[in-house]
Amino acid sequence: MKLLTCPLNGPRNISEFTYGGEFHLMPDQNKTDARQWAEYVFFHDNAAGVVTEWWCHTASTFWFLAERNTITDQVIRTFEASEVFSQRKAFSVIEDQA
């Protein structure tokens, strides 16, 4: 069983975690055409190499990010989501939507 190091709880068996999918920044829905939006929602990179993924430590419901090499299954590092998301997120509004 693999070990994964939770930034809050330290190294634990991977069975203590929930996988949260590939990490992608959401494109601005108002500036994205349907094709690009579908790419974001439905198509995953499934890249061979180092990818960033969401993981959640289930017992503490602590979400964090992990960089993992999908070829070797080596986890390069894990870090808190606040490294990427430090600001309150606002969504754009289309003025003439009415």
């Binding site: 949260g20 959640c56 419901t61 979400w63 989501a81 606040s82 998301f85 309150r88 997120k89």
Partner: peptide, 15 residues
């Protein structure tokens, strides 16, 4: 649902 709420708010950072 609870997990998902926390995941979204890790990105939205609402108060």
């Amino acid at each position: 649902v609870y997990q998902s709420m926390l995941k979204w708010n890790a990105q939205w950072r609402l108060d």
